[in-house]
């Protein structure tokens, strides 16, 4: 991920985007399932769309640290505490990988964070839901991470090389995230009646929001089609959602927990699980910023960032001072 936005180290200008053959060549590369790499010429809309998507993905990783991070101090056993600490730490790493992928497109992480902090870029609205009980940590792992992985696996083959490579690493590391959530719920479900009720309550609350993580239905998703044409998205929202339901519905039986959808049933004809209609009005409210914890998440994030200002400045000050000393010596 080098050199792409530092023109001083780039000896030759990238081909002009107004070259008439440019879009045709670019689309031929996409159609050939080729990979676009940082310094290639690319349509401006492709670049902008990628920056928006990768940044939102990165923001989601770091905001997503909060709902679970609040349980690191309260995890009910030392084993669970260690697992959760490692998981939330991984999410910081994943945010970092994704910001780095976005930076290959000529933006800076500080700018992207600034756009997050000023509300100009969004993060996944799933993280605006509260985590009142320990079972929420299980439900987030099983359902939210499960949905995220379903979304992310196809991105490992997306047309933009750095994004695909970051996603390979993330998917590999996240394989334990979903499992630990499943294990938490399994233990609770097979524990005391009170624990079982806690697990069921969490699954009841997280099921529909996790289905909404796949975005609006295909008929209603204008960005989706273009994203697929460019090889950034490989499957439609509804296809991925179906894949997730097919995966999790049988797992709920192993957990001994029910999913809060009376219409959920296996359709032997199609080989898929049918599910009830999703009420997206709630999702749109949450996206607009009316989610239960929107303000709190942003306040935590900006507060941590601002309290770090003097630290980041100090490190730069030290580096400048010592670079000068070495140059003189």
């Amino acid at each position: 991920m080098y050199g792409n936005h530092d023109t001083t180290s780039v000896p030759v200008e990238a081909p002009a985007a107004d070259d008439p053959t440019f879009d045709r060549d670019f689309m031929a590369l996409i159609d050939d399932d080729g990979r676009v790499e940082p310094r290639d010429a690319m349509p401006d809309a492709y670049r902008r769309g990628l920056v928006r998507q990768i940044a939102q993905h990165a923001h989601s990783e770091i905001i997503g640290m909060q709902p679970e991070g609040s349980w690191i101090g309260r995890a009910p056993s030392l084993k669970r505490k260690a697992i959760l600490m490692a998981k939330v730490q991984d999410e910081a790493g994943h945010g970092l990988y994704l910001y780095a992928a976005a930076e290959t497109l000529g933006v800076d992480r500080a700018d992207l964070l600034d756009r997050l902090h000023t509300g100009r870029q969004k993060y996944s609205s799933i993280f605006n839901y509260p985590t009142p009980t320990w079972a929420d940590i299980g439900a987030i792992g099983w359902l939210v991470d499960g949905a995220a992985i379903t979304n992310q696996v196809p991105i490992t083959k997306c047309s933009y090389g750095p994004y695909a490579r970051a996603m390979v690493r993330i998917c590999k590391e996240e394989s334990f995230h979903q499992r630990q959530g499943f294990e938490i719920l399994h233990t609770l479900s097979h524990g005391s009646p009170q624990q079982h009720a806690m697990a069921q309550d969490a699954v009841d609350r997280w099921w529909w929001p996790s289905l909404m993580m796949f975005g609006p239905p295909d008929d209603d998703s204008p960005n989706s089609a273009r994203s697929m044409r460019w090889g950034i998205k490989r499957f439609s929202n509804d296809e991925l959602r179906q894949r997730f339901v097919d995966m999790t519905a049988p797992q709920s039986h192993a957990l001994g927990l029910s999913l809060p959808d009376p219409e959920l049933a296996f359709d032997a004809l199609t080989g898929h699980w049918r599910y009830g209609e999703i009420d997206f009005t709630e999702l749109f409210e949450v996206i607009k910023g009316n989610g239960p914890l929107n303000a709190q998440r942003m306040a935590h994030r900006t507060d941590a960032h601002e309290r770090g200002d003097w630290v980041r400045e100090a490190a730069l000050g030290y580096a400048a001072k010592h670079a000068r000393t070495e140059a003189v010596a």
């Binding site: 050199g3 530092d6 000896p11 030759v12 990238a14 081909p15």
Partner: peptide
């Protein structure tokens, strides 16, 4: 990152 010189896609 700024110290890396790369061949250009154009070349």
């Amino acid at each position: 990152a700024a110290a890396i010189s790369a061949s250009s896609p154009d070349e």
